[in-house]
Nucleic acid binder design. Sequence first.
DNA 1: CCGGATCCGCACGGATACTG
DNA 2: CAGTATCCGTGCGGATCCGG
Lengths: 122, 122
Amino acid sequence: MERTNKPDTTDCRPLSEALSKIGDKWTILIAIELEDGPKRFSALQRSVEGVSQRMLALTLRRLERDGLVERTVYPTKPPSVEYALSDLGREMTVPVKALGTWVAENLIRIERARLKFDTALD
Amino acid sequence: MERTNKPDTTDCRPLSEALSKIGDKWTILIAIELEDGPKRFSALQRSVEGVSQRMLALTLRRLERDGLVERTVYPTKPPSVEYALSDLGREMTVPVKALGTWVAENLIRIERARLKFDTALD
DNA sequence: CCGGATCCGCACGGATACTG
DNA sequence: CAGTATCCGTGCGGATCCGG
């Protein structure tokens, strides 16, 4: 059943699972926000603005668990926590932003298609 | 508020919205499946296998609305419907598969990170 | 054979309040 | 400041039935 060499599409299930996580509403925004450099929890919440602290905490924990961001606790008073992209995370932003760039550049085409589709329903 | 030139990250909201749709569980699998060529509804349901016909229909309609796939009805008896990637859709699979490839190649690193993270909880 | 319509469970995600 | 815990509404997604 090996028609050609398609190493990435053979086992799609875990792949799509991972993509689902990346494609989730906040992950990308947070990752992009961290590209500018390390940020603290509250700073992130202000930057992304719209994210609840619950989702922010959950997403950050997942990113940390996946080794995409690194969490550093500074034992100051009051304690502050910084989140930064790991090497792996920085690598990931490359294809992610490539996709993002494509979407941004072709969003107008998509919207045109939607308009055409919707008006064709009459 | 224009700090530097970041054409794709300035207005992240519609972008992340679009990415959320792409990142949804079925969209990518279906798009990749359609790369091999046009397929009929039932054929798709068999290929992707695991998708309910509801989700398949919904996803296909959204892809069609976004101008990423084209739906062709053949007035045979019984009627058959073929779905195919549009030019826009084929373009999109390039960055999508780039992301997919990256994930596939680094999945083991992610899983290692998870294992390390989980075992560190003792 | 293609897909729309409906019912419904359940997980995701927001709001709020509370702890270190 | 940086989270965790709880409550709860909403919408996604599966199963099933029905129509074209």
